[in-house]
Design a protein around this nucleic acid. Sequence first.
DNA 1: CGATGCAGGATTGTATACATGCCTGTCCTA
DNA 2: TAGGACAGGCATGTATACAATCCTGCATCG
Lengths: 237, 237
Amino acid sequence: MEMRGSMTEDAAALSGGGNDTVAGRLALAIHEHRIQPGTKLAEDELGEIFGVSRTLVRAALQQLSHERLVTLRRNRGAFVAQPSVREAREVFEARNLLEPRTARSAAARATAADIARLQRHIDEEHAALDAGDPGRALRLSGQFHIEVAVIADQDTIRDFVAQLVARSSLIIALYWQRRTALCESHAHHALLRALADGDGARAEEMMKGHLLDLVSSLDLRNPAPPARSLREALDRI
Amino acid sequence: MEMRGSMTEDAAALSGGGNDTVAGRLALAIHEHRIQPGTKLAEDELGEIFGVSRTLVRAALQQLSHERLVTLRRNRGAFVAQPSVREAREVFEARNLLEPRTARSAAARATAADIARLQRHIDEEHAALDAGDPGRALRLSGQFHIEVAVIADQDTIRDFVAQLVARSSLIIALYWQRRTALCESHAHHALLRALADGDGARAEEMMKGHLLDLVSSLDLRNPAPPARSLREALDRI
DNA sequence: CGATGCAGGATTGTATACATGCCTGTCCTA
DNA sequence: TAGGACAGGCATGTATACAATCCTGCATCG
């Protein structure tokens, strides 16, 4: 199978750098919506699941907390983060500042191999959707954005984008309104064509529009994210 | 003295949220160039200095590692980060994407109180320079940029900027060429005026130019790292 | 019957102990 | 004398033990 690392590595651009680490596996589960926002992450439980002591679990939770995927509450424990409406807007505002111009840079640098890799990425995304695995499709869809930063050869921005994409996954879990269809892959394909053409200006515009569409597909009016339990809903700060 | 938190809090926008924490104190020392890039940060030594066990020291080092202020090398230990030339360019590229447009937003939102606070900030910066404390002046200078993001009311971007500013401090420690004068405060003052006028376009341009000047004042051709003792730099505070 | 206070259990916070791998200095050899 | 192998010390990696805090259920009281 092989697959030359790139996608696999980039999945771990953050989250410990490996999918075999505690942080990486947790991040993957969150990213694919297999754990819902607000879920309590008990140290002993995770330790048992992953077969390590609380020491390593705590280190992983701290890392994920720094990436804003997990919220640490003193003497209460760790929980999968529940981004507020405000945070949701801020995340997409930040993406809007970073990604379009990064896409422009990527267009100027993309090689044939890069384009082919992106195409395979989109294919995988389709395959996941057809296979009825929307979680995996969502994760791949996010990784597409990270790939763009990789092609732009900007590691620092890539890390920021990776974090923002991960947080966007949580935001989608909370605020996605299902009545909008999955236009995702269309947007990615159009962006890919701009990159293949080396048309930076168009790539920038496509990315900007794509992000706008993403925000538009969210329902950011009701300030009440669905909480796991009544307790969680009431004593939240 | 009091000083109403704002600047003090923002200093801890990252780094644990408090200057009394291990991470906060370490970050401050790094930020003020009291510890040089490359310095070994031994766990036992730090534990003794701060009066805590290695457990807490490790947590702090992990956090600073996430903020790219510290480099963790497996089985080798922690070191103050030494940003490469490439990383230096990337950091300022990221700042260039984030800060100018954030300054524009800030101009649209700045209140009289905000302007007054920024003015006090600049005054403090001057005072530190006059008092012959360039480390403190540099830290305040960086916090000015964070303040702009605070006024723009963008917490997510603020955190990114805070991290980039901290990394910039390391970059300056490594690549600053002293032959350029301190034009800093001039630039900040000009930016302040644009913000006070509510002139977003001008604020954006000023910030862009200011960042360009900053990069121009660096010598990004040859890598050259120094190093020094540790306890001496940390005993104060 | 509902509210309040208390106690026990459970979970997190911190420190310490043990295991593992690196670094250095010495000794041996060519 | 230069080079390399080895052993010991030392720093880090991980797990476990103890302390502090919080949550839950029950008993008691109004």
